[in-house]
Write a protein that binds this DNA or RNA. Structure first.
Lengths: 202, 202, 202, 202
DNA sequence: CATGAATGAGGGTTCATTCAT
DNA sequence: AATGAATGAACCCTCATTCAT
């Protein structure tokens, strides 16, 4: 997924700088109006450079979405993978993972919403990769749970719980019109953890 | 929300007929390509009439989305409201409600996905109404749970469970690329119900 | 010009009735929004019958304009021609003609405005005929003046005065946003007549 | 009225250039076929650029009309206002003003015809402004006449004469199918001046 | 590297006109 | 005679993308 967005610019530092600007602007604009309603001109303008310059750093409008997805990957998937891959799996560790995940979701709310809404706007291959990433996450989380499976839950049930946890993280983003009124992030996280513990542990 | 889509056609039966055709086509096309990628011409063509005729039955492209939402309302919200409003609330009844809800979600998968993806494409007022509907559903479900609250769960926790249940229904739709491979609807429903019972009942 | 608007209806009385309805509606609508902004549907609707029925009494939208022009002809040109053709020409008679003309213009204000604004929307041949009518009027008025030419004005000057008079009549219509505030029709007519007399008579 | 037509182009010189091209083309096309019959594509094509480029220099089709009106203002109203505002008012000066006015009208014939025919196609506010401009002109001309009022004509009569003069200027444009055959501009002007002098002076 | 003017395919929408009932 | 549903050509306008400067 990394490096999918080619540019004609050689100065890599500049590329990174500009890409970050584009991502910031794009997230805020896509969030407000959606991908299709946002014009490339708007993106360029808000990012502080000309439309011509924008196209020095992307090839097609879709690339802007890819940049946003790249950014989610870096902010969410990579840290989570890193966290889940190392160390021994204990109840405590599982709780930490869930905690971290919810915290990360809180940080990338806008991106998650965009992910949910604009997945269709992306090329088939890209979409497949994004879903693969998500599948990987489910599997990893599932594995962690399976290793601390006190109650001898079936694999089926554990997989479902893993899915539920991930969706609960997303839900904090896409249902914020409802949830953020009633709960702080910590409240939300703690309640969900309590509820999960009743399913997971005796 | 009902009747928001005006027409220049006088024959009401015909209007209903055509609207249904439009909804069917729209769901399948929006599902495949999204609202913005789908042209009005395509909708007309697939529905079997000309672009001119399409515009005899809608006023603007957005109206097609409204038709789809109307349809969800009729298929989901109305039945659920009816179900939840009458009768006494027992554990058994709660289970029935959840069952029914999951079953309904299974029937309107495409619509739910569209709802998630195209909410942004709708006018502010419309969007508010749709979210209001959803808020109402949360509240209703919450109330039912509160009436069979064996474990003396706090209101906060119950509200969260209600949200979780509703999102689990949606999840069956928007995560089908993952879930439908592993579970049949009945399996999914039963597992979720089992998991919920551990949270709700002793 | 007469009878240019063919219909598929045999009942001539009905045709006349419907045509009059169409003319009334058209004048009011064209006046308000112009020919092109007015749709045939609107005309039919305001006239109290269906679009299908409208097209039983006209062949094309342009026909509606022709009907309006026919109506002007009947209300203005015919009476004026009749008046100017008969009798002997005296100062008194000239004054009467001018008086009558201004009075007629007052009665067909809307039609005149439409004439000025929509002449371009009419077929070349039709436009030619309308201008011919107007040329005829100039010539007739010119002739009358020439017969009471006390001051031995040149033909050139008399022709110009004739044109001026006719335009002054139109002006009462198309400059009413200015003139009708300041003058009643009688005041306007009398002042113009006074001014003309200084040009025509010693 | 000035500067009402916004642009997304930054190079002001280019904007002026293109606007002039648009005005030229528009006058000729509107003249031939009217505003509504003329398509934006035709305008672009005749102006020598693409439809996309046209829309870089206007926002809506109506803007093309505004450009034409702006142009009339610059060519007619501004010079006339300048002329009338300065200097002492004498018979001679009045004659000069009338002369200039008729000369200007001769130069903007097409524009005047468009003004007469497409006033309805313009937004209410714009129309009001255009009529205000015309009212201002009447008042100015009226004032000049009042200052050289040898014959002690009433204000009412003078106002009417002012209106007549202005309309006579327009008439040279919109009745050219008749007048230009019979008179050169100088003849027309001189005759009208002679006629006016009989009304104004002893 | 940066700019922004130019392009034109393509989309939403309208509306005069027809024709089966 | 009357109706009104159906049609589709045609119009306005947008916007991603290019390229000369």
């Amino acid at each position: 997924m990394k490096g999918k967005v080619n540019t004609s610019i050689k100065d890599l530092k500049l590329v990174k700088e500009r890409h970050e600007a584009i991502i910031d602007v794009a997230i805020s604009l896509f969030q407000k109006k959606g991908f299709h309603q946002t014009t490339t001109r708007e993106i360029a303008q808000h990012a502080g450079f000309s439309i011509g310059t924008l196209y020095e750093y992307i090839r097609k409008k879709e690339d802007v979405l890819l940049l946003v997805y790249d950014s989610i990957e870096q902010k969410v998937y990579s840290p989570l993978q890193a966290l889940m891959k190392k160390g021994i799996y204990t109840k405590r560790k599982l709780i930490t993972i869930i905690d971290t995940y919810f915290q990360l979701m809180d940080q990338v709310q806008e991106e998650v919403i965009i992910l949910y809404q604009e997945l269709k706007s992306v090329s088939d291959e890209m979409r497949y990769q994004i879903l693969q990433k998500e599948r990987g996450l489910v599997k990893m989380l599932s594995n962690v749970i399976k290793q601390v499976n006190e109650k001898q839950l079936t694999d089926e049930k554990i997989d479902l719980i893993a899915n539920n946890i991930l969706v609960q993280g997303h839900m904090w983003c896409f249902r914020r019109w409802n949830l953020h009124k009633q709960y702080t992030r910590t409240q939300f996280t703690n309640l969900q953890k309590e509820l999960l513990q009743e399913q997971l542990f005796t």
